[in-house]
Design a protein around this nucleic acid. Structure first.
Lengths: 351, 351
DNA sequence: CTGTTAGCGCCTTCAA
DNA sequence: TTGAAGGCGCTAACAG
């Protein structure tokens, strides 16, 4: 039993479909109040629900926003999603969600699905990959987006531009100044620590991770410190945990009285920092007594993490909102106005 | 410039639209391989992307799953969302996301929007409200769902049935045994604590919260303990924080040597527990030394929360998957097979 | 201000 | 196996 249609409503009200449409949806001049009321009553009594698919077909505009994330349960992404969702509500649009795990292959697939559904705009969050093995997939992704834009779609990418994507006017980038911010963080930490610096990062070729490494090293260099060792692992809690474990095996707890060489760890994102902290603790190391550690993002989870973690605050929700806004209005200016902020907390307190 | 259509592809390939359709989408008998190849090439060269809206209109099936949550950035909901998303991927469907903040009014609106988009199924997560001021909205919500089901839609509700919803065969409930589990938790805690029990819960009329209170009190009663005082606040971290603050003002830190009266707090969900723990700590109380506390849900965040929190583990992802599955296949049996588990951790260790 | 006529892009009978 | 025709539900031009 299918839902009732506009035609049925019209017939019941004794008017033409066009009139019924004008009363129930259209914004053009309103038909006479007498007849309008009849239509509304007919619609009500039939439980009429307009078919958005059909409307979209006729109007060629769906009111759909496609959101691509790696993992919706990751606090980083869910915060961004909240921002996207907020704008969507304000604009009376709906969010289509796709999770990819982070591979360009899946991202391409998600974009294709959104394109098929004729989403008005697409927001892509999550780091780009510059790995050679992803080069082909990246190109396909870029091509897919290109086609989508050429067909009138709007896309916003969070973080860094997609390799090979054309600079059409439907393509927006919300740039996150990872390098500059990581450099600032390094500068701040350099003032507090003498010990060797270590970076726990994602695999080589993850743009966000690589940028943060680069910025951090640059900051150390400017402070005349030798570059940090870089430990690679998964760009998530699990990876941080493993890296932390490895690190723990070579770090000694401080003996009382000893001056001690206290390592200062920079994890390329907060979830890695949390994972690392967990494994360090499991191995009997205390933060910040035995090791200092800082993260990046300032995800909401940090609010209740002890010891409180130093990090770089990113306005995640705002990033999501901004990205979405840049696609719904045609503000090129809304792109890339993100600012972050170094936040020092207990985890990096000097001893 | 619109995307190219099936007709264009057909013309380019020198075949009829029907044939092109059969080659590119339809599953009926396959046209000759020679002609099929021509069509595929034509599609490729034109960058043809099938219009899912049009397909949906013609087939009256959209492949859309609507998900309603209170807040996508809340770990409880994002975990469920992950489960939903997972099934969606397996089934080659897409997830439409709506966040409501928890009011039945907004939920009704979300359901209406999903119905308009002709989502094949709708999953509603988040506690029901039994408050009298929500009664009207609940009825409207129920009516909306009813109509949706009558039109062939499938709906799954997580937690408890919606007040007033008809028992049609498109209506599934994934029941969470809040009462039984809370009772078990109380039983476990009763064995460890003598001190007064206190429940920090959401406002009266939130079904999930009320059920957990009821179960907990029942457990205490069976252990011949007097009922716990109930403190009401928002059913979120903020609420937990406030409740914790109030509680802290009347709890004394344990003096060394004193036998001390140690309170045992049960927060109706984990985020409340986390909030409460934060304010207790801010007020100089230590867990579990001065106060014991337990939560409910076992959200992922707990993994890195110190002290580790006792709670009731709910298979959140599985709940999301199960709810979704119950709507895509027509298994009534998939409904309501959730089991939880009491997990005792450090936060409730006896002194 | 209302009704009529065409499509929007696709799928699915039906006949060839 | 392939093509032609009709319709999915709605909107947007055009008449009246």
């Amino acid at each position: 039993m299918a839902a009732s249609t506009l035609a049925e409503v019209a017939k019941l009200a004794g008017v033409s479909p066009a009139t019924a449409s004008r009363v129930l949806n259209g914004s053009s001049r309103k038909p006479g109040e007498d007849i309008a009321e009849r239509v509304r009553q007919a619609a009500e009594s039939l439980g009429y629900v307009p078919n958005a698919q059909a409307q979209a077909l006729a109007k060629s505009s769906t009111g759909l926003i496609g959101l691509v994330v790696h993992d919706i349960a990751d606090p980083y992404f869910s915060a961004i999603a909240r921002g996207v969702q907020q704008v969507a509500r304000e604009q009376h649009r709906m969010v289509l969600l796709a999770t990819t795990g982070g591979t360009p292959v899946d991202e391409r697939e998600a974009v294709a699905a959104f394109a098929a559904r004729r989403a008005d705009s697409i927001v892509i969050a999550g780091t780009r990959s510059t790995r050679t093995e992803d080069a082909a997939a990246n190109l396909e992704l870029a091509a897919e987006l290109d086609r989508y834009c050429r067909n009138g779609g709007q896309v916003a990418v969070v973080g860094q531009p997609i390799v090979g994507a054309q600079e059409t006017d439907g393509y927006h980038v919300v740039t996150i100044p990872n390098i500059a911010l990581a450099e600032k963080l390094a500068t701040s930490l350099a003032g507090l620590h003498d010990g060797p610096f270590v970076i726990i990062a994602g695999p080589a070729g993850l743009a966000t991770s690589d940028e943060r490494i680069e910025g951090f090293q640059r900051g150390l260099a400017k402070a005349s410190l030798s570059p940090a060792e870089v430990i690679r692992a998964g760009f998530n809690r699990e990876g941080g945990f493993e890296a932390g474990k490895e690190l723990a095996s070579r770090i000694q707890p401080r003996q009382s009285g000893e001056p001690a060489l206290r390592h200062c760890i920079f994890a390329a994102n907060d979830v890695m920092a949390i994972g690392a902290a967990a494994s360090l603790r499991e191995n009997g190391l205390r933060i910040p007594r035995d090791v200092a550690i800082a993260g990046f993002d300032d995800i909401e989870t940090l609010r209740d993490f002890r010891p409180s973690l130093s990090t770089v605050r990113l306005p995640l929700e705002e990033i999501g909102s901004l990205a979405t806004l840049s696609t719904v209005e045609h503000h090129r200016e809304t792109s890339g106005q993100i600012t972050g902020q170094v936040i020092l907390r207990r985890s990096t307190e000097p001893s």
